[in-house]
Amino acid sequence: MSSEHVAHHSRAAGVDQGRASTAASDVSGSARDAGRSSRKPDSRTAVILSDADIRRTIDRIAHQILESIGDRPALLVGIPRRGVPLARRLAARMAQFSPGNYPVGALDITLYRDDLRGRPPRALAETDLPQTGVDGLVVVLVDDVLYSGRTIRAAMDALRDHGRPAAIRLAVLVDRGHRQLPIRADYVGKNIPTAFDDDVAVHLTEIDGFDAVTVERAA
C-alpha cells in the first residue's frame, strides 16, 4: 500500500482522473487533454513498467492472491476496460501455479458513478457475473490504476446489489496515490508517485497491442 505519497491535491470536482486518462474516449475536452496535445510527446513521457515488468508483476500478484484466498472459493472480477484482461491474465497464471478453477467475471461500474451529471452520455461496458451470484465468494476486484478510489467505491456499491460476497479484495497494477476516499488495495503491482495532473497510462496487448505502463509528467 502506498503511504509514501500522500495526496495533497484533493480536488473538489472529484473526477476520477485515473480512469479518464486511461480510457481515451472517457472525458472529452478537458483542460488536461487540450494541454497534452501541445506538449512534446517524448520529453516528459517515461516508461515505468516494461512488458517483462508487467509479466513479473502479474506473476507476483497471482502468487499473493493464491496465498491469501487459501481454499476459499474466489472470483476475479475485472473492471472494464483494462481490468478485464488483467483479471484473465491473473486467473491464467494462478491456474498454472496452483491447478484449479479460477472463474473470471466483469463488472461495469458506469451506472454507479457519482459524476454522471453534466456530462455527455457514456457508453456502458460489459458486465458478466455468475448466474449463481457472488454470495459467499472471495471477490477480487481487478483494475489497472488506483487513483481517487471512486471507481472502487462504485464497484463495491454494484457488488452489493449482486449479493453478499464473503470478502472483497482489490488488486491493481498501479497505485498512483491521490485517494479521495478511504480505500486501499490489497495487492499492488507498483506504487508510482505522481502529481495529481500527471497522466498514467496502462497499455495492454489485448486492447492496445502492446504491454507498458507510462507516465506523462504534467508541464
Partner: peptide, 18 residues
C-alpha cells in the same frame, strides 16, 4: 498465460473481448 493442466474458468461461455 494458460496453464498446461487447467485452463482458467470463465463465467460466461467466453468473456467477450472488451
Amino acid at each position: 498465460g494458460t496453464g498446461p493442466a487447467t485452463a482458467p474458468g470463465s463465467v460466461g461461455a467466453a468473456l467477450e473481448t472488451v
